[in-house]
Simulated scan of single mutants.
Amino acid sequence: MMGTANVSSPEDFVLLGFSARPSLEPVLFLVVSGFYVVSVLGNGAIILVSCVDVHLHTPMYFFLANLSFLDISFTTSIVPQLLVNLWGPQKTISYGGCVVQFYISHWLGATECVLLAVMAYDRYAAICRPLRYTAIMHPELCLGLAVTAWLGGLTTSMVGSTLTMLLPLCGNNSIDHFFCEMPLIMQLACVDTSLNEVEMYLASFIFVVLPLGLILASYGHIAQAVLKIRSAEGRRKAFNTCSSHVAVVSLFYGSIMFMYLQPAKSNSHEQGKFIALFYTVVSPMLNPLIYTLRNKDVGNALRHVVLQNFCGFTSKRGQT
């Protein structure tokens, strides 16, 4: 019995990552470290100003703060272990650490899909129903939509990840990636995984395809509404209210589609690692930069908070 348990559940996994290119690992360590620090600071700043500045106590920035918290959590679940593996020859992750990693990454990935759809609906209400926007996007609905996104992602993660964790791995413990991803764990199983694949495809349809459809439908209505605006200034303002979200959606879904729709070539898996590196490290770093650079409200609020704290610090030093 003990031998069977050990075969089914290895003590650790080997994350091969970028070990095929050892000369690249030190460079990746420095780049990923820098991106991770910028990502945490940038998303943390978005959360801070969204909470502190009363002018940003709106549905749009409430959802943006949720997205920023999600990005920090997602990168933190993956990057520290990646940095450990890039730094030295040890490429292992404990069985428990691997399980936690694919539970969390699955949860947060599904949550982000739903949250981006919710943010698109918010922009639809703001542009297509401006007179009723406050009544439509009332605080109770915003909280309910955010909770639905988080709980929906958690539910699909609990189901899919648990089914994956129950698969017997029969001694296979090498994962050709830099983090524990559910489809890669399924490939290590030595039994039929048809049920797991059906669940994964169903979850992908509900949490990836449907939200994307809602996003496209929302922006289809937004485009029609913007084209009806007569003044160029009015069209510009309407475009600016949703351009940041469009950029974030394009980065997120663009990287996913590029990774999963590429042809099955011998080097496609290696390319997939770099694309995965983009949406796990680079994209969460770019999100706060996109909203800060393209949104004057966030930039002004951030400057106000920094100047207020700096002036308060200097005045205290002057008093002492």
Rank of each mutant, 00 (worst) to 15 (best):
A125F: 01
F102G: 08
V84R: 13
D71Q: 05
N43R: 00
G88Q: 10
P80Y: 03
I136Y: 01
D12F: 08
A20N: 08
Q101Y: 01
M60S: 11
D12R: 07
L41M: 14
I72K: 00
L82P: 00
F35Q: 02
A110I: 04
T111N: 08
P80I: 05
E140D: 11
L83C: 10
L116T: 07
Y133D: 08
A135F: 00
V32R: 00
L56T: 03
G109N: 06
L83K: 09
Y36M: 03
A135P: 01
E140Y: 06
K91G: 10
V40H: 04
Y124H: 12
D71A: 15
L56M: 03
D12M: 06
L67T: 06
I104W: 10
Q90Y: 04
R123A: 09
R132P: 05
L83W: 11
H55Q: 15
S105K: 07
K91R: 08
F18M: 10
V54D: 14
F13A: 05
L108S: 00
E25D: 09
V118A: 15
V79E: 01
I104P: 00
Y124A: 12
Q81E: 09
Y61G: 08
P80L: 06
F63Y: 14
Q81A: 13
L70H: 12
N66K: 04
L108M: 01
G34L: 05
S39Y: 06
V37R: 00
L56F: 04
R21L: 12
A126Q: 13
Y121V: 12
V40C: 13
R21A: 14
F62P: 03
F18P: 05
Y61L: 07
V79D: 00
Q101L: 07
C113Q: 03
P139G: 08
I136L: 13
P26S: 03
T75S: 15
S77G: 09
G44F: 06
L64M: 15
P59Y: 01
H138C: 15
S8P: 00
S77C: 09
N85H: 07
G88C: 11
F63S: 09
T75V: 14
L131K: 13
H57A: 14
H106K: 05
I47T: 10
P130Q: 02
I78G: 09
I127W: 02
Q81S: 13
V114Q: 07
L30E: 12
G44T: 05
W107E: 03
P26T: 06
L108D: 00
P130R: 02
F18D: 05
Q81C: 06
A117K: 07
F18A: 14
A120Y: 02
T76Q: 01
H55L: 13
M119G: 14
A20R: 12
L30T: 13
W87S: 12
N85F: 04
R123M: 02
T111E: 09
L70K: 04
